[in-house]
Amino acid sequence: MLVTGKAHKVGAHIDTDAIIPARFLVTTDSAVLGANCMEGLEPGWVKRVSKNDILVADENFGCGSSREHAPIAILGAGMPVVVAKSFARIFYRNGFNMGLVLLEVGDGVDKLRDGDKLEVDTEAGQIRNLTTGENVACAKVPPSMQELVDAGGLVPYVKKRLAHKQQGA
């Protein structure tokens, strides 16, 4: 997967109430959630985002509630990848389950500035900063997660498992 877009940088411990406040949780519509992405961080934040832009965060991104509305809101806002120093555990599962690619790069995040143009190559395990010319290495997606991504997310993965079960029965 190759994504090129502008970096939008946020801080540490960005919680799910910042990503999508609870008052928007009366819907599961990705367009509506996307239009309110980061509304708990700064009203109108999402207006800066263009399709295929990349969210860049400090440590523990996505901490807080288990709401899957958070990765859906990020995807709905047009951002297919989040690069962070580290992710909160539930958010990490949710991201992959929803088809949002999450790259944990540790202190490499410090080489990425707000507004830099980035090229993310998940297969090569590399983030190229096209603005500064610097590269940041990222670990490849873990095999168990790759299996999910290859299947197209958790929904098709379980669908396949259920079909196998039925054949076996």
Binding site: S65, S66, R67, E68, P71, I90, R93, N94, N97, M98, G153, L154, V155, Y157, V158
Partner: peptide
């Protein structure tokens, strides 16, 4: 805790 799709699975 997990997300909704994990829970669906």
């Amino acid at each position: 805790g997990m997300g909704s799709t994990d829970i669906a699975g």
